[in-house]
């Protein structure tokens, strides 16, 4: 395999570009994107249900929740078919018989989807800001950082979906990825339960081992959620964002390495 960094960069770039173009023209994705923006805008209606002094809070809280959740939904729905679709439709037969490493193909697919998420985040973020401006709500100081964190969470979920898609069907991959995501949002709860002196994790040693194991092998998704800080006006520092970036990078690298390991050994029967 060509050892030059430039060559490898070109190959990954070609696959990433291809993935981005394909996704951005896919009607299903366009529909999902429109639905995502509509949900963000619908926070205007939701805020109308809140008491008047809580409306701004609901607009900020629900807006960020909608952006984060929809990014994750798009990550899962597109991530789980990332490899499966190419294997199922045999498009990989043409790609993998070119002078390209399988790791480069996966890296290109991942980068392509992450680029799609950047565009989606931009559009949803824009819709959110417009909603806040229209409703005359002051923009939270750390809104931009919150959006970056939402994207990092989606990136981590995408790499997890990519891992599952290298060996499981889209439905199973979706269930696995969403399951890990949900468990990941409950890591602080598990950590709290482990510190208690009574309760199920004390009564059952097996449950305790399971909880401790879960904390070690499942990424903590709450790292990326700063809605409380945004609402209460607690500053989100760049130091925190960079820490979250490296947390995302570490887990994503692990999931990506496992995906490459499985994908490189795979036969395309």
């Amino acid at each position: 395999m060509s050892g030059s960094f430039g060559g490898s960069f070109n190959r990954i770039g070609a696959i990433a570009r291809n993935t981005f173009t394909e996704a951005s023209r896919n009607r299903a994705f366009i529909g999902l994107g429109i639905a995502a923006i509509a949900l963000v805008v619908s926070s205007m209606a939701i805020s109308g249900l809140a008491v008047s002094d809580q409306r701004a809070r609901v607009l900020v809280d629900f807006g960020l929740f909608a952006v984060s959740l929809l990014l994750v939904v798009i990550s899962i729905t597109m991530g789980v078919i990332l490899v499966f679709k190419e294997v199922d439709r045999k498009t990989f037969y043409v790609v993998l018989t070119k002078p390209i490493r399988r790791a480069e193909v996966l890296a290109g697919k991942l980068l392509g989807l992450l680029s799609v998420l950047v565009v989606t985040l931009f559009l949803m973020g824009l819709a959110w800001v417009l909603v806040l401006v229209i409703r005359d709500v002051a923009l939270p100081a750390d809104l931009f950082k919150a959006l970056i964190l939402a994207w990092l969470q989606a990136a981590l979920v995408t790499s997890l979906a990519l891992l599952f898609s290298t060996f499981a069907s889209p439905i199973l991959s979706g269930v696995f990825t969403f399951g890990v995501f949900i468990v990941g949002t409950m890591i602080p709860v598990l950590q709290d339960l482990l510190t208690l002196t009574k309760g199920p994790l004390v009564a059952s040693p097996a449950m305790r081992v399971l909880a401790e194991g879960t904390i070690k092998v499942v990424p903590d998704m709450t790292v990326f959620n700063v809605s409380k800080e945004l609402i209460l006006g607690i500053p989100v520092t760049w130091h925190y964002v960079s820490g979250a970036f490296f947390y995302c990078l570490g887990w994503s690298a692990l999931f990506f390495a496992l995906a490459v390991l499985i994908f490189s050994r795979r036969d395309f029967n």
Binding site: N10, R89, K90, V94, V95
Partner: peptide, 30 residues
């Protein structure tokens, strides 16, 4: 593989690409 061309049986490509875009993608890989 840089000296080989391969056509699989009943080939299938990316639905939303145009032919020259597909060929550019593969050309970039090479």
């Amino acid at each position: 593989m840089s000296r080989v061309g391969f056509l699989p049986e009943q080939p299938y490509f990316y639905d939303y690409l145009k032919p020259q875009e597909l060929l550019h993608t593969f050309g970039r890989i090479f």
